[in-house]
């Protein structure tokens, strides 16, 4: 069976002013794959996700979702698709932020159904039914009427995951989903992501949780100074010969 390609990032370049952040990064993700991105702080991991999720425009490179082209390199510059096409492409992916970014004035349920109802035009009843299922799956069945400020960080992050899933993205990005959490709350969020992986959700995860990345990923990218230093299966990365990779993984494991 032919692998169904969901995301292709080709030769991304991104500078902020004079500082080059991404030099030449490519990443291809097939349906059902879980790809983790690891690397030191400031290496460009967030910028890569922000380029992929259209929050930041890259300077050069191609970006494809399925057979839709979000941006294409023309004469060394990325040219983006039109507004309507980009709107369609945004429905292809979801993003879970490090600090959740829930809407504080909406209840948990409203956070989850507001976009399906008002962006996709789904019915309220259908969306509420779906939201209830998601909340149940994420262990938040009783929390629909709560407000984000009444929840722990781990619960808030699970609501953020439910909010992203409610739009049925084909691919879900996570930018350090547990970095803003107390250690005792990290586990509940990682457990949810593991559950999604078991359900064959396609995911790209930036994380500093080495053990988790090793267990959940089909593939890991080690990024440093805006380039992919090493890429491969968890086994390959965790037994790498590259001293930089070894040193980083060793340091993070402690």
């Amino acid at each position: 069976m032919e692998d169904n390609n969901l995301l292709r990032i080709e030769h991304i370049k991104k500078n902020f002013g004079d500082t080059g952040v991404l030099s030449d990064i490519s990443l291809s993700v097939n349906e059902g794959e879980v790809v983790s991105i690891i690397g030191p702080s400031g290496s460009g991991k967030s910028t890569l996700l922000r380029c992929a999720t259209l929050l930041t425009q890259m300077d050069d490179g191609n970006l494809y979702y399925g057979d839709m082209c979000a941006a294409k390199s023309v004469n060394g510059k990325s040219v983006y698709a039109g507004k309507d096409e980009l709107k369609k492409i945004r429905q292809y992916f979801g993003l879970v932020f490090q600090n959740f970014n829930l809407f504080p004035h909406y209840s948990v349920l409203k956070n989850i159904i507001d976009a399906p109802v008002n962006v996709l035009g789904r019915s309220k009843e259908e969306s509420e039914k779906k939201a209830a299922e998601l909340l149940k799956m994420l262990g938040l069945a009783e929390k629909g009427d709560a407000y984000p400020c009444e929840l722990s960080g781990g619960q808030q992050q699970r609501v953020a995951i439910a909010r992203a899933l409610a739009l049925e993205p084909k691919i879900l990005f996570f930018d350090e989903p547990t970095s803003a959490l107390d250690p005792e709350l990290t586990g509940e969020v990682l457990a949810v992501i593991r559950k999604l992986a078991a359900n064959h959700m396609t995911m790209v995860i930036v994380t500093h949780e080495m053990q988790f990345a090793k267990e959940v990923s089909d593939r890991i990218l080690f990024i440093e100074n805006g380039v992919v230093v090493e890429e491969g299966t968890p086994d390959k990365l965790f037994s790498s010969d590259n001293p930089r990779v070894r040193e980083f993984i060793g340091r993070m494991a402690n």
Partner: peptide
């Protein structure tokens, strides 16, 4: 916070929806 705009953008809200559904109610408070 800028994160409110970014969350809304990724969820597919239009600029107008982002302002009137997400930003303005919080501004009033």
């Amino acid at each position: 916070p800028i994160g409110q705009y970014e969350a809304a953008e990724v969820l597919g809200y239009s600029k107008r929806q982002t302002f009137f559904r997400i930003i303005f109610p919080q501004v009033i408070k």
